[in-house]
């Protein structure tokens, strides 16, 4: 098992947290894991992305050049990353914010209306967790329960009032897949 994954969106969408949560859950599940953010001026208002590797054996390069899973939370990220998914890989698209059709036939495209589903829960902010719930359910490399269990350890203490909401959002995303 080797999942090499990039999550991209704009600053404020919580893409770093999505990656960290998945990485943390992977570690809890006994996988080898690594997480690398984009950093520097591009963090300020522009697009942000992070790279996650989940593996059964020691991770050599933590910087995959051909990721087999890419998650795009907005249109600029789709433009930047759609071509980079490895043949046979998966592309998750936040269809609430991306209206462009993906032309590639050699990959599986999974559309998740993350913002709309989040709004159903009352707060758009948890769109990232909706998407992550869908990604985790689809990939099947980590149980969603492990991700939910990781929430309290990854979210800073002052955000713990949002634990329940994040949990619901993750479950909402899963339900879209199963």
């Amino acid at each position: 098992m080797l999942v090499e994954l990039i999550i991209a969106g704009f600053g404020g969408q919580g893409v770093m947290l999505m990656g960290q949560l998945l990485t943390y859950a992977g570690m809890k599940a006994g996988r080898e894991v690594s997480w690398i953010p984009s950093y520097g001026p591009e963090m300020r208002g522009g697009t942000a992305n992070c790279t996650v590797v989940l593996a059964d054996e020691e991770i050599a390069s933590p910087l995959p050049t051909e990721p087999n899973v890419i998650v795009v939370m907005n249109r600029p990220s789709l433009d930047k990353f759609a071509e980079k998914v490895k043949t046979g890989g998966k592309l998750f698209v936040n269809s609430s914010l991306v209206d462009k059709e993906v032309q590639r036939q050699d990959i599986e495209v999974i559309e998740v209306p993350a913002n709309e589903l989040a709004l159903d829960l009352g707060i758009e902010k948890v769109a990232n967790m909706v998407m992550l719930g869908a990604v985790v359910a689809k990939l099947g490399v980590v149980d969603l329960e492990t991700v939910i269990d990781s929430l309290s350890e990854v979210l800073p203490a002052h955000r713990h009032n949002l634990l329940e909401l994040n949990k619901k959002a993750l479950q909402q995303g899963r339900e879209l897949i199963i």
Binding site: Q20, T23, M27, V33, S34, W35, P62
Partner: peptide
């Protein structure tokens, strides 16, 4: 380097 500094690993 930036990768070692920014990367998260167990």
């Amino acid at each position: 380097d930036g990768v070692i500094g920014q990367m998260m690993e167990p």
